[in-house]
């Protein structure tokens, strides 16, 4: 059975400043090799705190299907 879950999605405009790391209450975001933020889909609860904190507006929330 598939369920829908909201998670944060990082876009290529990410400047890897790390504002999202501090915003995330679940430690679901990490900066990959100083280049771009990555989200751990298993930890992310889609609260949107990272998107609020992101100064580059490069995080959006999207619904994904979980099997």
């Amino acid at each position: 059975m598939k369920t829908l879950k909201k998670i944060a999605v990082i876009h290529k405009e990410c400047v890897a400043c790390g504002s999202c790391l501090k915003g995330c209450p679940r430690n679901a975001v990490a900066i990959y090799k100083g280049s771009i933020a990555v989200v751990d889909g298993a930890k992310c609860v889609g609260c949107g705190k990272c998107a609020q904190a992101c100064p580059a507006n490069s995080i959006t929330l999207a619904e994904v299907a979980i099997v």
Binding site: V15, C17, S19, A53, C54, P55, A56
Partner: peptide, 8 residues
């Protein structure tokens, strides 16, 4: 803008 806009 946002607090850390300088970082952009």
């Amino acid at each position: 803008f946002k607090p850390r806009s300088w970082c952009v």
